[in-house]
Amino acid sequence: MKDDLILRVVSKLTMPFMLLFALYVQFHGDFGPGGGFQAGVIAAAAIVFYGITFGLAAAQRLVPEIVVERLLAAGVLLYAGVGLAGILLGGNYLDYFVLGADTVAGQHRGIFWVEAGVGLTVAGVMLKLFYMFASRGRDAGDA
């Protein structure tokens, strides 16, 4: 599909907006529908779309596998880290009330970082899954 002009142009045009939409869904999730799970999937879908159009190698140049692997571990650690921050600041595990100046600000901050952790993990896992299945096929084809 690398040589299809329409696909190349359309995917290049739409990809920034897909990533932007993922960020919107991530950070606007407090006020409208959305959150870490959806944002992660949408961000991964944008890269997957790029990978389908331009080939796996191009996608892997854009987002190297090592970055993806770090990302999916970092998300879980960020989530757990928010919980530990609650303990360090004198509360219970995953207790957001102590994170901010007052309880509402603390809750808001806690939710924000937790959602960020979820988003990173989901995006990383979905992208990694795509890379694994696609690269498996390429290797089998070469052999």
């Binding site: 959150g35 799970f37 999937v41 989901v122 896992v125 979905m126 899954l129």
Partner: peptide, 10 residues
């Protein structure tokens, strides 16, 4: 269900 869907695909 939100979490169930994502876990489902994983």
């Amino acid at each position: 269900i939100l979490t169930a869907i994502v876990v489902g695909v994983a």
